[in-house]
Design a protein around this nucleic acid. Sequence first.
DNA 1: TGCAGGGTTGACGCAGCGTCAGGGTCAAGT
DNA 2: ACTTGACCCTGACGCTGCGTCAACCCTGCA
Lengths: 261, 261
Amino acid sequence: MLTISQLAAYAGVTVRAVRHYHQIGLLPEADRDASGYRRYGAKAVVSLIKIRILANAGVPLAQIGQMLQADAATFAEAVQRIDSRLHDEIERHETSRKQIAQLAAGDSLALPPEVISYLDLLREIGVGERMVEAERDGWILVVAAWPEDIPAVMAAKSAQLDDPQLVRLYRILSEIIENDDTGDDDPRLAQAADIMAGLAEQAYTSGEINPDEVSHDELPIDLLDALAVESDPRAERLLDLMRERGWAGWHRMERLAEPPD
Amino acid sequence: MLTISQLAAYAGVTVRAVRHYHQIGLLPEADRDASGYRRYGAKAVVSLIKIRILANAGVPLAQIGQMLQADAATFAEAVQRIDSRLHDEIERHETSRKQIAQLAAGDSLALPPEVISYLDLLREIGVGERMVEAERDGWILVVAAWPEDIPAVMAAKSAQLDDPQLVRLYRILSEIIENDDTGDDDPRLAQAADIMAGLAEQAYTSGEINPDEVSHDELPIDLLDALAVESDPRAERLLDLMRERGWAGWHRMERLAEPPD
DNA sequence: TGCAGGGTTGACGCAGCGTCAGGGTCAAGT
DNA sequence: ACTTGACCCTGACGCTGCGTCAACCCTGCA
């Protein structure tokens, strides 16, 4: 008669596994000797080896019992199920691998290449790293909300950088953000507001701002505004300055009915 | 401000996941409104999306926090680790798939083809299904104990089936096993013992039984004997009859010093 | 006012064991 | 007889990433 560790060794499993199989009823409890030790015969070794083979093949323990008693057809069917389950698992892991490969490659966090290039463009025109990171966070929101629109959106955005006014705006904003010790009275805030108002006016008259266009959900855009304010409270001041100039919103501008004065 | 379900929807995760991330400290707990509801800003959405991206890429939650703060080098190193972990997982699943493919193909339980053929040989010479299964269980033990010796062992075993005496022995044993209502006095037990003694004598004189040979561990062979006895108690009687004829053991014979009479 | 559809915490469940903790037992050496 | 080291026992928590109740509170609408 064998002790549990001998049994386990012959079958190539751990003692703990044997006890676990007892517990879940997969391997019948063995008789005990005078001192309460489990004692096993040769049949137990065979059973345990069968269990190990199926378990190694990826069969869930809960199914092994039935499979060992099933007829050939049922057995084959079960094998089919296991196999497709393993197949799915493999595919899931492989897509995961592709995703982490992207993580390792890109600027960071698997943003699409169009966005990465845009961020690089910003760096090239002299935008500081803090602001680039803030931009990136914004684009993370956009990508999550409308992933399929990214190529078109990014093409338009990149083209806009040809406008020297926009470049100036970015640089000014960058300077503000990079100095986190200036307050709401930083004169550059007014400069930025002036440029933004000018650009908005221009876009509006050329028809690029269409008040009836509700192509996308509103909320993500509000989120973008909120993100700016949360990231730097001076954004709130900037919004005020814009309102003074007759514009509401930030990431989607709206002309106010009557510019207050 | 967003509720938890809005936050979850924007980030593409479940509410339960968000709460879980709070619990493990991955996502900082949000401020509560007057009625105790969590309220989230845009930054939380960004954080949660980042978490989701890493989690989908197979990064363990426990590491995501560090990765989001790590510098590029540390990040890349972590990515490396994750990737090789995923790689291992995939390989493990693929070997599992190969194994279940074997399970589906073979006689059963992934025995090597040599054993399968041997069992088929037994069927061909008229051995009944019960006995074939008993044989199979025995071979499961042998395969588990000495997997690399199987081709040689099976070749020898198959060759021995050319001996008409051995074939007779198998048939007699099969008849005994197939009738489970005969007792210890079945005359076929004596017949079988006679043949076995003759075969043993023959093997001994031709030098096939070498008393000094201890090529393998003893215990698995004892297990084979024990398995026979456990499977059919009449095996015990057969061992007695063999001892009367001057032989001890079953799967490895030993000549007794003095045949008792 | 009632109801549907949010929100809250707390807890168990899942798969397959690993790994203590806190005992008793066995075999061998001194 | 005693110690020592190697095993045995049961019971219980831990791991991973949430899903899924339960039992209760809050809010907005008809």
